[in-house]
Design a protein around this nucleic acid. Sequence first.
DNA 1: AAATGTAATTTGATGCAACAAAAATGTTGA
DNA 2: TCAACATTTTTGTTGCATCAAATTACATTT
Lengths: 229, 229
Amino acid sequence: MHQNIVQAPLAPLDRQSSLGELAYESLKDTIIRGQCEPGTKLTVRSVAQALHVSTTPARDAINRLIGEGALVNLGPKTVVVPVLTMAVLDEVTKIRLALESLAAQEATPHVSEDDIAFLEDTQEKLNTALDERRYMEVLRLNKDFHFRIYDRSQMPRLVAMIESQWLRIGPSFNGLYPEFAIKRQGVANHQWALRGLKDRDPATVRAAIENDLRDGYRRLSNLVHARGD
Amino acid sequence: MHQNIVQAPLAPLDRQSSLGELAYESLKDTIIRGQCEPGTKLTVRSVAQALHVSTTPARDAINRLIGEGALVNLGPKTVVVPVLTMAVLDEVTKIRLALESLAAQEATPHVSEDDIAFLEDTQEKLNTALDERRYMEVLRLNKDFHFRIYDRSQMPRLVAMIESQWLRIGPSFNGLYPEFAIKRQGVANHQWALRGLKDRDPATVRAAIENDLRDGYRRLSNLVHARGD
DNA sequence: AAATGTAATTTGATGCAACAAAAATGTTGA
DNA sequence: TCAACATTTTTGTTGCATCAAATTACATTT
């Protein structure tokens, strides 16, 4: 029995860079969107078939995602999209607090007028999307907001590490409860961060981001608890 | 012209788990020991030949190490052991401060009597090795000391992230200047950390580890600067 | 000599087949 | 009905041939 795990939301795989790279991007995108229900088994051959490539690029993509923690190796022949447990959420949150507050703090001196304009624009769109209950877009805009700041830290390795932490949490919620991921309270934190950026005050930006993460943690931990029924 | 890049210090590759896993461990060990001079090109075929495996496991190992940042992809067909620049050292140090201070702090409440005994024993051996100028062993013992603490944080993902930061710095010094990596001042920091662990005072342990990292940073940055001649 | 163009070689990527390990399935016996 | 066993299928791993791209070596010209 061949499970067709990954089919609908696949990019057509235009040929630009290597197939392994494209397979990785496509698979990652599918996972981060929550299109693969956590717990779903992934096999080399099913991924290869879904992406219309041979086993080698599929294997590469899976291995890479395992390395990032976006997939986990349960048994000897079972890789799955991990189900977020309370223990993992706690650990990832602590890691995120350490990394993202560092990025926010380091970014502050390097934020330009253009960055501020982009962030204000993004926040406005975010508010609109929130009003109109377009939650998937809210998630995307929220990510844009955060990473525009982090990018300015000029610490590319740090940004990559932060991304892989988001990749650990996203799959369990983005597809299932997008409406819970962001709420009104997040807006206040973003405004607070924007104020800190304009004032070029790293401590304020840091505090605002930390508060944003803590708020998010509370909502997510409620969901994890609720799921235990 | 076939450069035999990785030859002497290769483990014989006994067959226990997958070849890819063994190739990864062997190659990683070679790199971390500084046996591959930074800047050295690695090719799939040369690694495969050195490890007496086919190209597939060799490719897997290289890809995995690229993912971890232990190897970098310069050109389209050139992966090298990265040469540590000042920019990278600065970034990695900031990341390490964030991650390792978190690990030290979280570990403190979970440290047992056995852990303390191990740490004191390790520190004693470290002092001896330092006196007898067995610097490679000093490096190993220093790593044992730090990671025994970090392990107790009960945050396995965090520990893995810390390890990959060590992997970014080690290759450029362990093989070249092992005598500079640890000095007397490190001893005081370790004793300070031990005191904090015995008192179960997370703030002290955290401060001691941070100080240890900062001392290490000063020494390493001197080396990086000196190398610019 | 230095620059330039061309041929030979090296190299990563990719697909594929074979194999052994592990699951899944089916069957038997109580 | 369920547990234990045997069989079939699935699956990751590994090695290898092929191909196109990239690098290197070399010859030619200025």
